[in-house]
Deep mutational scan, measured.
Amino acid sequence: EIRVRVEKDPELGFSISGGVGGRGNPFRPDDDGIFVTRVQPEGPASKLLQPGDKIIQANGYSFINIEHGQAVSLLKTFQNTVELIIVREV
Rank of each mutant, 00 (worst) to 15 (best):
T37S: 11
L12S: 04
E67L: 09
V20G: 06
E89Y: 15
F14M: 01
V36R: 00
G69M: 11
E1N: 10
L49R: 00
N25W: 06
G21M: 07
E42S: 15
T81E: 14
K47T: 10
D31Q: 07
K54M: 06
K54R: 10
S46W: 10
G52P: 00
G43W: 03
E42C: 14
V6C: 04
R5G: 03
N80D: 14
R23G: 14
V36C: 02
I34S: 00
K8E: 01
E67C: 12
I34V: 07
K47S: 12
P26A: 08
L12M: 13
T81M: 10
S46N: 09
I56F: 01
E89M: 06
L49V: 12
Q50Y: 12
E11Y: 13
P29H: 11
G43T: 09
V36E: 00
K47M: 12
L49I: 15
L74I: 13
L49T: 03
G69S: 13
D32G: 08
I16H: 00
P41R: 11
R5F: 15
N59T: 01
N80H: 12
A58H: 00
G24P: 11
V6T: 02
E11A: 10
V87F: 14
G43A: 09
E7Y: 13
G22W: 10
D53K: 00
E67I: 06
E67N: 14
R28W: 12
I64D: 10
I86D: 03
G18R: 04
E67F: 07
E7S: 12
N80C: 09
N59Y: 02
I55Q: 02
N25P: 11
F78N: 09
E67S: 15
P26E: 11
S46A: 15
G19S: 05
I2D: 02
T37D: 14
F63P: 02
A71D: 01
I34W: 00
G69Y: 10
E7R: 11
A45Y: 03
S17H: 05
N25I: 06
N59F: 01
E83S: 06
E89Q: 10
I85C: 09
P41K: 11
F63W: 05
R28T: 11
R23C: 15
H68E: 14
P26V: 07
I56K: 09
A45R: 02
P51A: 11
V72H: 08
L74D: 03
Y61Q: 12
G21S: 10
I85H: 14
G19V: 04
V72E: 13
F63V: 00
D31P: 05
D32I: 06
K76A: 13
V36S: 02
T77C: 10
L84T: 01
E42N: 13
Q79W: 05
N65D: 13
F35T: 03
Q40P: 05
S46Y: 08
E83R: 06
A58N: 02
I85V: 15
Q40Y: 09
A58K: 02
G22F: 07
V4N: 04
F35R: 04
I34Q: 02
R88D: 04
P41A: 08
F78R: 07
G19R: 05
I66W: 03
P10K: 08
N59W: 03
P29V: 10
D31L: 05
G18S: 04
I64E: 15
G22S: 13
Q79G: 09
G33S: 09
R3Q: 09
G60K: 07
F78W: 13
D30S: 08
R88K: 03
I66E: 02
L48F: 15
Q70G: 06
R5H: 10
D32H: 07
V36F: 02
Q57F: 08
G21E: 13
G13Y: 03
S62H: 05
G43M: 06
G19D: 04
S62F: 03
G52E: 01
V36A: 02
R88W: 00
P10S: 06
N59V: 01
G60W: 03
T37C: 11
K54S: 03
R3V: 12
A58C: 11
Q70A: 14
G33V: 01
V39Q: 04
L75F: 10
F27T: 09
Q57S: 15
E89G: 13
S46Q: 09
P41I: 08
D9T: 13
P29W: 08
D32F: 07
G19N: 05
S73Y: 14
L12T: 04
V20W: 05
G33R: 03
L12Q: 04
T81P: 13
L74F: 09
R3A: 08
A71K: 03
D30H: 13
L75T: 01
G22I: 07
F27A: 08
A71M: 02
T77R: 11
I66C: 06
L48V: 06
G60V: 03
K76V: 07
V4I: 10
E1Y: 15
S73H: 14
V72I: 11
K8T: 09
P29L: 10
G60D: 10
F27E: 10
K76Q: 15
N25C: 08
V72R: 10
V72S: 11
R28Q: 15
P26W: 08
S62I: 04
V20A: 09
G69F: 12
N59A: 05
I55Y: 00
D30C: 11
G52N: 04
D32V: 13
D9C: 10
D30I: 07
I16C: 06
Q70H: 12
E11I: 04
L48G: 14
T77H: 13
V36T: 01
P41D: 15
R28S: 14
A45S: 07
G52D: 01
R88Q: 00
R38K: 15
F78D: 06
I2S: 03
I66F: 05
G19E: 04
Q57N: 14
F78A: 13
V87Y: 12
N59D: 05
V39K: 00
A58E: 00
G18L: 02
L74P: 01
E67Y: 09
E83Q: 05
D9Y: 06
I85Y: 09
Q50I: 14
A45D: 05
E83P: 00
S17R: 06
V4R: 01
G33P: 02
R88S: 00
Q40F: 15
E1T: 10
V90C: 14
D9G: 13
S62A: 06
L75R: 03
G21N: 15
S62E: 06
I85L: 14
Y61T: 13
L12G: 02
F35V: 05
E7V: 13
N65K: 10
Q79T: 13
V20F: 10
E83I: 04
Q57W: 09
R23P: 08
L48R: 07
S15Q: 14
G69C: 12
G43Y: 05
D9N: 11
I64P: 01
Y61A: 08
R88M: 02
S17C: 15
P29Q: 14
I2P: 00
V90R: 08
R23N: 13
G60T: 06
P10A: 04
I64F: 07
L12R: 01
Q57I: 05
Q40I: 10
Q57R: 15
P29R: 13
P44T: 09
I66N: 01
E42M: 10
T37V: 13
Q70F: 12
S15E: 12
P26T: 08
V39C: 05
V6L: 13
G24K: 12
H68S: 08
V82C: 07
E1P: 04
P51T: 14
E7Q: 12
T37F: 11
G43S: 12
G52V: 01
H68R: 10
S17A: 12
F35P: 02
V39M: 03
I16D: 00
R88N: 05
K76Y: 08
Q50E: 11
P10T: 06
K47C: 13
A58L: 02
A58M: 04
A58P: 01
Q40H: 12
R38C: 13
